[in-house]
Design a protein around this nucleic acid. Structure first.
Ligand code: MN
Ligand code: MN
Ligand code: MN
Ligand code: MN
Lengths: 234, 234
DNA sequence: ACATATTTTTAGATTAGTCTAAATATTTAT
DNA sequence: ATAAATATTTAGACTAATCTAAAAATATGT
């Protein structure tokens, strides 16, 4: 197994690729549910078996990356959270690189970034960050954590959940799957477009909207996967 | 273990990171000795034990990447050679990227390229190649194989082996270690500099040369690690 | 409350890659 | 040509990461 030293929040830890993938999964699950993360949920996310998860969770727990209460689930420690953010930072910076510099489409970058995020070199990621002009968000609108794990909180709401008449900049997608992103490309809806909600169809919950002034009719499923930045009314 | 399909010379093969590193080592050893490569030589190159080499060689042999005669050593098959060149291509393209785009010094890129060379994505490496303007050589002057394993043969000679009075462009280094590259930086000797040999010191074999017109005195050890492109006298 | 269903953990096996120590083959030197 | 030295392979063990099947804990429904 390949071990290379890295620094997370000032604490030197060495993690295998598998450990990193688990930590990242746990982070993502932790965010949406905010309770303890269940073994089955991790297994589902990682496309693996619950028994494998139990094994890995034990190891991560011994390393101080997660808190584990038998039969009750896991949560990230501060070190684990920092580690997760470090990997997410790398993943998103590489995604920016692939789209901005190498001309990949935004639906093609995930698999490669999934590999690149594990390259171990602090100098590399800092120089990459500079080369890209210190981007704040990735091609899908997701924020890029800073070196020490901070990130800008965007006040955003799903298009399906804003009141009719609301308007704002499209700042992200919830689903990053190829079919969805390709749909958006085809319908010329992109990050940073200005969107107004015009009317909601009672029957199917579909939405009449304006994208940069152009009228578009989208299903409720589409609307449930697009984020709008909402200006707080003062 | 992580397996991702890749294409080498039209033949789909999946190789682990470890297999790739072995194949690359065998390729490098094969080139200098051109006889069969010995188990101990591979163990030395890979910083591992002969018994581990034997195991891996068996696996590579079953996969059709090397020919193995028990107790006699190994040589690469055509598929193995193509695989090695594919990895070397990636390694050197990434080195160019690190130096040209991310501002790494030429003595800092090897370790990171050693990781990046294993990223599996044909699209990635083709787009990277284009992004870099299809470079023919890496920062150390080593040629970059084309997608299908061809590369330009440079007629080059070690500075220590050319006759006195010979002159030509410095096209590469034999040793790529940090101390040697830093020495060259310090003494302002770089790839593409024009070098003339003036005189050889009988006593220690050291060499008086001119680098872009500037007089420099270098030891025989330095001269034995610098390549000059020699113009064939017609 | 208690039986049933679900979730989680344990036990034991498997594969890749490595190691040490011992056995075997080859090379070298007398 | 034989013995000694060297090189290579085999045998057996170890760790990391996974799996299946079975056991144990927790949650759910009536
Ligand atoms: Mn990954
Ligand atoms: Mn993304
Ligand atoms: Mn490598
Ligand atoms: Mn190089």
């Amino acid at each position: 197994m390949l071990y290379i030293k890295c620094i997370f929040g000032g604490v030197k830890k060495t993690m295998t690729r598998s450990e990193e993938n688990y930590i990242k999964s746990i982070y993502h699950l932790d965010k949406v549910e905010s309770a303890m993360v269940s073994t089955n949920a991790i297994a589902e996310e990682m496309q693996t078996k619950p028994s494998s998860v139990t094994d890995m969770v034990k190891k991560l727990s011994e390393k101080g990356m997660v808190n584990h209460k038998r039969y009750k689930g896991v949560s990230l420690t501060e070190i684990g959270r920092k580690a997760a953010l470090s990997i997410i930072r790398k993943h998103r910076l590489w995604e920016v690189f692939l789209v901005e510099k190498l001309d990949f489409a935004w639906d093609e970058v995930h698999e490669v970034a999934e590999q690149l995020e594990h390259i171990k070199s602090d100098a590399l990621i800092e120089k990459l960050d500079a080369h890209l002009g210190f981007p704040r968000v990735d091609p899908h609108g997701d924020p890029i954590p800073s070196k020490d794990g901070e990130f800008k909180k965007v006040i955003k709401k799903l298009l399906s959940e804003v009141e009719i008449g609301a308007e704002g900049v499209c700042v992200g997608v919830k689903d990053s799957s190829t079919p969805f992103l390709k749909f958006l490309d085809k319908n010329k809806i992109a990050i940073n477009d200005y969107i107004k909600t015009i009317e909601k169809e009672e029957f199917d919950g579909s939405l009449y909207i304006e994208v940069n002034g152009r009228k578009v009719h989208i299903s409720n499923q589409i609307a449930s996967n697009l984020y709008l930045e909402i200006k707080e009314a003062e």
